[in-house]
Amino acid sequence: MSGTPVVKAVNLVKVYQTGGLPVPAVRGVDLTVRAGEFVAITGPSGSGKSTLIHMLGGLDTRTSGEIWLDGKRADTLSESGWALLRRRKVGFVFQFFNLVANMTVADNVELPALLGGASPRQARERREYLLGELGLADRAGAAPARLSGGEQQRVALARALANQPTLLLADEPTGNLDSRNTRDVLRLLGRVHGQGQTIVLVTHDARAASMADRVVSLLDGQIVDDGAIGSARRRPGGTAGDVVELRG
């Protein structure tokens, strides 16, 4: 069923009520993401990008419109219905890693797999594989607080991938990381994308956005641009070297 979009949003609207005043955050977004796509969502703060990705993962309710995940209508689900769907199909990574503080790194990663119905052995094997891939095998027994920010974010990514989700949603995953850790997390996103992982990434970081095949730009809750980003090298008058102009 490669023809079924992983995500389909139809005329999606979110209006917050603050002090009796309606504040529209997302104003009629149509978005389709196909299997294997890596889509970056950018836009100024307040443009609705975080609200949008939260709605796509069922962490925030929509005011109107439709959300379809993997061919199934999702916006009409109850909170527990969403929770079930997320366990099976959606991995989430946030800016602040949101690891469970009083559980080890290993348990943090295994928990979603166990909740998703994996056997303890399957959950352990998946965890060992993911932490190994992320260079964190020797940190399995540690408490999250013992880890650096970059390591915690890699653990959060491992947790998000524990269930082999159909869709990985990432909300500013590099927003709290320094340059080196940003590079490591991006390299990892690139690797799982290379293995076919569908990714929707909300980011303000141009380095992160440039990992994607396609960039969706939001302004005032609406999509103002949606298209592929290619390589500048093929265009005249714009190569990487042209960005650098050392004077002297």
């Binding site: 991006l186 990992m211 298209g227 980003i229 500048a232 714009g238 990487a240």
Partner: peptide, 12 residues
């Protein structure tokens, strides 16, 4: 924006 992002990709 698309042009800048493609430059960013080249730099990466």
């Amino acid at each position: 924006r698309r042009h800048y992002l493609s430059l960013m990709r080249d730099l990466r």
